[in-house]
């Protein structure tokens, strides 16, 4: 159909490469998404403590990792850290080996990049809780912790879910850059297959379809969570 040739899909070697590639993409996306959300929570909570030196540290972290390309960060963790001495010595051969593997380098940089974006998203969620609501809760006798747990956090979570969906879908797509530091994810596998078969258009269409499917599933799950958690005035209900 349309002159497209997908006969190479029948090749077991290419099937294995592509399935393995999708699997690595999923692993990388999952690990870095969880870590990014965790970093975001810690950072946003840290900012509520109102300690000037902690705020300064968090702000510096956000500025560095939000404002640099993830590809550059991956190359930094993969090559530069090794160059400046992040190595382990092999007890048998005495050779210096890099401390961070390609997957770990990619996962760390994606986590920090996503984490920086999450801190900002969660902070904006906390900031969005109306002052009047907080004052009302305080006048009802909530302690600082109780106020946060029962009033501020539930509202903030619902406010920042849409931007979290954006961040995580973006992070999922950014995993494709890890092919540059040899993480054998979907794009890495796809590149080798079309180099062998010359079916570049067919391969790209297929990769496109896989990403659309996977990212749509992720976005759909997060939207569902948004709806389930919705309450009047915050989040989108059914």
């Amino acid at each position: 159909m349309f002159g497209l040739d997908y006969s190479w899909l029948g090749d077991p070697v290419y099937q294995r490469w592509l399935v393995d590639g999708v699997w690595v993409t999923l692993q990388l996306a999952l690990v870095s998404s969880l870590a990014a959300v965790a970093i975001g929570l810690v950072g946003a909570l840290g900012q509520t403590l109102r300690l000037w030196w902690l705020d300064a540290c968090i702000e510096l972290f956000v500025e560095i990792f939000r404002n640099t390309p993830p590809l550059l960060q991956m190359l930094f963790f993969y090559f530069t850290l090794t160059q400046i001495g992040f190595t382990v010595t092999d007890p048998v051969t005495g050779l210096q080996h890099p401390l961070l593997s390609a997957f770990v380098s990619a996962a760390i940089s994606l986590s920090l990049f996503g984490g920086a974006l999450c801190i900002e998203a969660f902070r904006s969620g906390l900031d969005a809780v109306p002052k009047a609501t907080l004052e009302a809760a305080r006048s009802l006798g909530y302690t600082r912790l109780g106020l946060f747990r029962r009033v501020q956090a539930p509202i903030a979570a619902r406010v920042c879910l849409p931007s979290l969906t954006n961040i995580l879908t973006n992070l999922f797509k950014t995993t494709s850059q890890a092919s540059v530091i040899t993480v054998p994810e979907l794009m890495y596998a796809a590149g080798q297959v079309y180099s062998d078969t010359f079916r570049t258009l067919e391969m790209m269409l297929m990769v496109l379809l896989v990403y659309v499917t996977l990212v749509s599933l992720l976005a759909w799950a997060l939207t569902l969570a948004e709806r389930l958690l919705a309450y009047p005035g915050y989040g989108k209900g059914f």
Partner: peptide, 26 residues
């Protein structure tokens, strides 16, 4: 190197775990 014509033979026939970069300097 990613895309080299012999990569398939090396991984499939010789079972080598290739770590393929986009360019030679890397």
């Amino acid at each position: 190197i990613q895309g080299a014509y012999y990569n398939r033979t090396l991984t499939d026939h010789y079972g080598i775990r290739l770590v393929n970069f986009t360019a030679l300097p890397e």
